[in-house]
């Protein structure tokens, strides 16, 4: 599903946000990328989500080498294969939960009526079937994050990227959101959760630990330069 080899991202000013990261994530995995702030995990999310290209090295998502795709093709890749969940939810203020979720396939060429129908299904799937016509400000934080998750998964993307999905939530809501992500994983979605919360990461099947732009620990693979040949 995801394959990084020697991926490096250098920002203007010489900051090495990623230095030679190699990582493979198989289809159907549930992975935490964990590290303190400044460890490069946000850059990791951007690169995995094709929002940014690596300076050197290769990143391939679902078989596509993102360095070789144009901006249009990357947009199409995101529209069809990647769902995002953000810490700040990023819901449109004036729109109902249903329409917010329906925007998940806005750029996928699906007509409005069909989008709304699928949004309804997705909202039921995240347990908000009774909140479809509420606006974001009428929902609790946990409910808002569920709406954002429904938006991310309503197109059934093979890959879901979650950036600190519980970062703005209280413990109970956060646990609810994590339970939902596990359910989606159980149904077959590949999920990558970026977090600084070690406790949360430890509860997931695989943890990739980052520090200073490098992978310093991977519970499934040994992060050595020969990782490629060591894939089982």
């Amino acid at each position: 599903m995801i394959k990084l080899s020697e991926a490096t991202k250098v920002y203007a000013g010489g900051v090495h946000a990623l230095s030679g990261v190699s990582l493979t994530i198989e289809s159907g995995e549930l992975v935490a990328i964990v590290g303190p702030s400044g460890s490069g995990k946000s850059t990791m999310l951007n690169v995995l989500g094709t929002l940014d290209r690596p300076t050197s090295g290769t990143v391939s998502i679902d078989g596509y080498d993102i360095a070789r795709l144009s901006d249009r093709e990357l947009s199409a890749l995101r529209a069809s294969r990647i769902g995002f969940v953000f810490q700040q939810f990023h819901l449109a203020a004036g729109m109902s939960a249903l329409d917010n979720v329906a925007d998940g396939l806005l750029y996928g060429g699906v007509p409005l009526a069909e989008r709304r129908r699928r949004a309804e299904v997705a909202l039921q799937r995240v347990g908000l079937g009774h909140r479809t016509h509420h606006k974001p400000h009428e929902l609790s934080g946990g409910e808002r994050q569920r709406v954002a998750i429904a938006r991310a998964v309503m197109g059934d993307p093979p890959l879901l990227l979650a950036d600190e999905p519980t970062g703005n939530l209280d413990t109970a809501s956060g646990a609810g959101v994590m339970a939902l992500l596990r359910e989606l994983h159980a149904a077959g979605t590949t999920i990558v959760i970026i977090t600084h919360d070690r406790e949360l990461a430890d509860g997931l099947p695989r943890q990739v630990r980052m520090r200073d732009g490098r992978v310093v620990g991977d519970s499934a693979h040994t992060p050595v330069p020969l990782a490629d040949t060591a894939v089982t």
Binding site: G49, L51, D71, R72, S75, A76, L77, R78, A79, S80, I82, F84, F86, Q88, H90, A92, D103, G104, L106, Y107, G108, R151
Partner: peptide, 14 residues
């Protein structure tokens, strides 16, 4: 932020 979200949802520059 909305523009960023739309790009993440797959909107092209156009």
């Amino acid at each position: 932020a909305e523009i960023g979200l739309r790009r993440s949802l797959g909107a092209t520059r156009g």
